[in-house]
Computed example of a mutant assay.
Amino acid sequence: MSQRKDLPFVRLNRTQNVGELAVTKKLEHFMDRGVRVVEIGNFSVASENPRIRERTTQIIEMAWLRMASDYDVYICHVLSPAHERLYRKYGFEIAEAYDVPGKKTQDAILWVRGWQFKAALRKHLKVETQNERQLVAEDGFLLPAEFRNQNSAESK
Rank of each mutant, 00 (worst) to 15 (best):
S2E: 14
K5Q: 15
K5W: 00
K5C: 09
D6E: 08
D6G: 03
P8H: 01
P8K: 00
V10L: 10
R14S: 12
N17L: 13
V18Y: 01
A22G: 15
E28L: 15
H29Q: 14
M31C: 12
R33T: 06
R36A: 13
V38K: 06
E39V: 01
I40P: 01
G41S: 14
N42C: 09
E48K: 03
N49G: 02
P50L: 06
R51G: 06
R55D: 09
Q58E: 10
I59Q: 13
I59D: 12
I59A: 09
I60M: 10
E61W: 08
L65K: 05
A68P: 04
D70S: 07
D70C: 01
I75P: 07
C76N: 12
L79Q: 10
L79R: 11
A82H: 11
E84L: 15
L86K: 12
F92L: 08
F92N: 02
I94W: 00
I94Q: 04
D99I: 05
P101K: 03
K104H: 05
A108V: 04
I109M: 03
L110T: 02
G114L: 07
W115S: 12
Q116F: 00
Q116P: 05
K118D: 08
A119H: 09
L121K: 00
L125C: 06
G140L: 13
F141C: 10
F141W: 03
L142T: 11
P144W: 01
E146W: 01
K156V: 15
